[in-house]
């Protein structure tokens, strides 16, 4: 992963979140407060702007800047959570213009750890974690299985991660929320797909798309 791929990923994520703003907001309307799409779109739009005006030396710096931008532009629950995850990812990556797929995978896991530390959610709580955790596991498993040399390895691992995120996202439907705003609904949160898990899938899918090209 180099700066160009890092930028391409965040760009693709911004595109996807912009295109799906209404959908995410609708999901949030059902069990939250109707702002998740707008929040994510505002955040990743700001990331795009911030990156356009910056010359980060390596992918680590790209993600740190992205994370900092998300923290200071999004607000809500998703801002600190995604912001901390991207900052942790950025800080976990070794210096240098390029990092290998394994280091990137370790960075993704550092992001997950930061998010869990901040939000305190466990798998099954119907949150971002339900898509993010299986995505990182799938990424690692794919690397272990197929090896991580070059961007080809990363591409395959990212594809696996996106697939697992999608599955995790869909698996939130029958869950009763125990964290975040949806938890206030108690049993009425059952039967709805979690908005945060959905944006997480979009972000991993954007990674897979960017890595594939």
């Amino acid at each position: 992963m180099d700066v160009a791929l890092a930028r391409a990923w965040l760009d693709a994520a911004a595109d996807a979140l912009a295109a799906r703003t209404e959908e995410l907001t609708s999901l949030d309307a059902a069990i939250g407060d109707s702002d998740h799409g707008v929040n994510m779109n505002r955040g990743f739009g700001a990331v795009r702007t911030a990156l356009a005006g910056a010359s980060p030396a390596g992918p680590g710096a790209v993600f740190t800047l992205a994370g900092t931008t998300l923290v200071s532009k999004v607000g809500g629950a998703s801002g600190p959570l995604y912001g901390s995850a991207f900052r942790a990812l950025g800080k976990a990556l070794p210096e240098g213009a390029e990092v290998d797929a394994a280091a990137f995978g370790a960075g993704l896991r550092a992001g997950l750890d930061a998010l869990v530390k901040l939000g305190g959610a466990a798998p099954g709580d119907k949150t971002i974690v339900d898509a993010y955790a299986p995505a990182v596991d799938a990424y690692d498993a794919a690397l272990r299985e197929h090896g991580g040399d070059g961007d080809g390895g990363l591409a395959a691992a990212a594809r696996a991660a996106a697939g697992a995120a999608a599955e995790g996202m869909r698996a939130t439907v029958p869950l009763q929320a125990r964290k975040g705003r949806a938890s206030y609904l108690g049993e009425r949160s059952i039967g709805h797909q979690d908005p945060g898990a959905t944006s997480t899938w979009l972000i991993f899918q954007a990674l897979a798309d960017a890595a594939a090209t």
Binding site: S26, I31, G32, S34, D35, Y184, R188
Partner: peptide, 30 residues
């Protein structure tokens, strides 16, 4: 209705109310 969403967060029939709502337009407990 939040300005961003542009439509009400839920539909509530003429003869029903949401009990136990918060202050963010979310549905109530029942």
């Amino acid at each position: 209705t939040t300005p961003a969403a542009g439509r009400p967060g839920f539909e509530l029939p003429e003869d029903e109310m949401e009990v136990g709502v918060g202050i963010h337009g979310e549905p109530g407990r029942r």
